[in-house]
């Protein structure tokens, strides 16, 4: 066994446990990026270089989608707490 597969396996295990145990959005997304790094290293150690390039291009797209969703969701939850008692009466 070489060093790159061992390190990638360690990164996969730590990232998978860390995504579940952390409770903040940003911490979860950082640990998810850590898990993706392990996945790309493990794909590369099988000599599938084209799949590795495709995967490393698509990784920031998924991260940006999750970040925009988390930002919009936090903003929505803040603003709805304030008006939720009177707005539905006016809407009807």
């Amino acid at each position: 066994m070489d060093v790159l597969p061992l390190i990638s396996i360690l990164s996969c295990i730590l990232g998978g446990i860390g995504v579940i145990l952390h409770t903040d959005y940003i911490n979860k997304i950082i640990m998810f990026a850590f898990l993706e790094a392990g996945l790309i290293g493990l794909i590369t150690s099988f000599y599938y270089l084209d799949v590795s390039i495709i995967s490393s291009i698509l990784e920031p797209i998924g991260t940006v989608i999750l970040l925009l969703g988390a930002l919009k969701y936090a903003h929505l939850k803040r603003t709805k707490k304030k008006y939720s008692s009177e707005v539905p009466i006016l809407a009807r």
Binding site: G16, V19, Y25, K28
Partner: peptide, 11 residues
């Protein structure tokens, strides 16, 4: 948060 946990079995 449940959606972010779903990403782990996907990987």
């Amino acid at each position: 948060k449940r959606l972010l946990n779903i990403e782990v079995p996907s990987m």
